[in-house]
Design a protein around this nucleic acid. Structure first.
Lengths: 346, 346
DNA sequence: TTGTACGCGTTATCAC
DNA sequence: GTGATAACGCGTACAA
């Protein structure tokens, strides 16, 4: 069987506890025995068993990740690899490892999370999305288990540590940007209304219109099931209005891609016939035709900080909840056109 | 502290071992005591500690996932969410959970995997990619640790269990498809030559040309760093040849997107000026303009079967290695045009 | 059918 | 500085 701490102890002529101290680099052990023990470890090819350690320690040094359910189309969004990169970077820095929840349905996901928590498989959890009325979040709160959320929890956001963008502001910036370019017929294409981010951005959009005295119209607001066929219909509706929009605020780069595909089909060209600004600035935005002007929400930082906050909770036993706001910036590409005077109609 | 098996035992007036047996649903326990014990578990809110279980069991019921390093652009490919879906489905079926390796460099990744293996954090590993001369794979083989590979390992593929497509055949099919449509100037745009999949597809492409007596030319073969700027240059080269290609075999949907963006810039239109078939058939292929004809390689199945094979190794202690081949099919969309007679030049 | 006793590999608390 | 010894929570021969 595998080599244990006892084998090392025997070979080095010390007690198992001494070996343990050497591993922990306990300063009260003489350099001499440290060397001897290390040589023994080397010789036997010893590696500590993390399960045993966790058991004795009551700490797993791993954090659980809750993604959208695997059946969820949202998982296809390049948002996740990038947020994962941020998460894994911070985790690696602090020598934490990652545990993945799995499950196709929300119920399965919940079971998985309950397993992680009750089975003491993880020390804390990062939720990679924030959905309205989410059972998993409710469970974690009720259990008082350390967790952080990427995005803004709708229910008591003040008592849940989360890292988010100022999505209200970002959407307002984008809408203002359009207004500054002479656009007045500005439509909003949002994602699933269950996602808090959607409602935040919608509010920002509304606010910008209001400030500019542009009337808000329900006709100009559609919600697209992320890349779904239904979305295409929504776009068709939008452009069969008597006054079709000249500019689109789109909640996600991928959605923008889908929309552009549909526009292309309809013989409409971006940015000539319609301008688009979307969110996330994933790599794809740069490779679209035309390259998309997009709001960079700093996805990497979202993940990085989420882990950072979580570890503060775990390591420092920090009880207070906080909110971290990651800055955004719109990066200009080629999907926006400035309207000339004659085009500035209502 | 948390409620343990002993607390349950006490409340139910049985020995801890009995509780353990109830958990395992041991048939030798009377229904009556089972009920009593279960009630006690319920009342106390008992949940087994997986670390303790793993320790006693010598099995973790979790499988480790090796993805490309988080810094690798390849991680952005929608291939991964989808393969993850397959993996997680099978894992969930068999009540296995998932562990993620992290790391930005290859060295960090290797450290991570060594940690999983030596620390006995996982029972087996699925490698989500297969790169030529991969240190991680070499390590796993040397350790004789159960693992399966998605894609074909270049070194001794016969002794490593892997699940793959017939990429040679797929590329040949695609090239034949073009040939059947009258194309003769067919170029191949491959990905990183380190990836085995690239060389397999390249061979299939060559074979098809040879069979059709179409001369193979190095000028028609370029390799694109996935979605990278360099790729754009490669495309420019291709289309500044005196005889530019009329058809492109592209190793990845995302690459095709990048290429189409560049073609658009150059004033070339798909499929009018150039036809394209790419691989993977990720959701994006459907939403490109025009929608891409693409080879569906059944990504979900790749993941699902990879776990299946791994579990056979682990559970049944199956030592023999095998190769599972997942079927592919090309799904026709709008990126391919049939050449008319006058266009069928060399 | 159920209980006893020990082992899984570590860490932590005492001693010395 | 270092060595016993007792947890950590569970599974499992073996005994009853």
């Amino acid at each position: 069987m595998a080599v244990t701490i006892k084998d090392v102890a025997k070979l080095a002529n010390v007690a198992p506890s001494t070996v343990s101290r050497v591993i922990a680099n306990n300063p009260r052990i003489s350099e001499q025995t440290k060397r001897r023990v290390r040589e023994a470890m080397e010789e036997l090819g010893y590696h500590p068993n993390y399960n045993a350690r966790s058991l004795a320690n009551r700490s797993t040094q791993t954090i659980g990740l809750v993604m959208p359910s695997s059946a969820d189309k949202a998982l296809q969004n390049p948002f996740f690899p990038e947020v994962l990169r941020g998460i894994s970077t911070k985790a690696h820095e602090k020598e934490y490892t990652l545990y993945l929840s799995t499950g196709a349905t929300e119920e399965e996901m919940l079971q998985g999370v309950m397993g992680m928590v009750h089975g003491r498989r993880v020390d804390g959890i990062v939720m990679l999305y924030s959905r309205i009325d989410d059972k998993i979040m409710a469970f974690l709160e009720e259990q008082n288990f350390p967790f952080t959320v990427i995005g803004k929890p709708l229910v008591n956001p003040d008592s849940i540590t989360h890292v988010d963008n100022d999505n209200f502001r970002a959407a307002k910036d984008v809408t203002d940007h359009f207004i500054g370019k002479g656009h007045k017929r500005i439509a909003f294409v949002g994602g699933n209304l269950d996602l808090v981010v959607t409602v935040d951005r919608l509010s920002g959009y509304e606010k910008a219109l209001r400030e500019a005295d542009i009337p808000y119209s329900d006709d100009y607001v559609v919600h697209v099931e992320f890349l779904k066929e239904g979305g295409h219909e929504a776009v068709m509706e939008l452009f069969s209005l008597e006054k079709p929009p000249t500019a689109l605020v789109v909640a996600d780069d991928l959605m923008a891609l889908g929309i552009m595909s549909k526009l292309d089909e309809m013989g409409l060209s971006v940015p000539h016939d319609v301008s688009i600004i979307s969110f996330n600035n994933v790599m794809l935005a740069e490779y679209a035709s035309p390259p998309l002007t997009s709001v960079d929400i700093n996805i990497f930082q979202l993940g990085y900080q989420a882990v950072n906050c979580l570890l503060e909770k775990i390591d420092d036993n920090e009880m207070a909840s906080k909110r971290v706001c990651i800055p955004h910036q719109v990066v200009d590409r080629w999907s926006v056109r400035t309207l000339n005077e004659s085009e500035k109609v209502n």
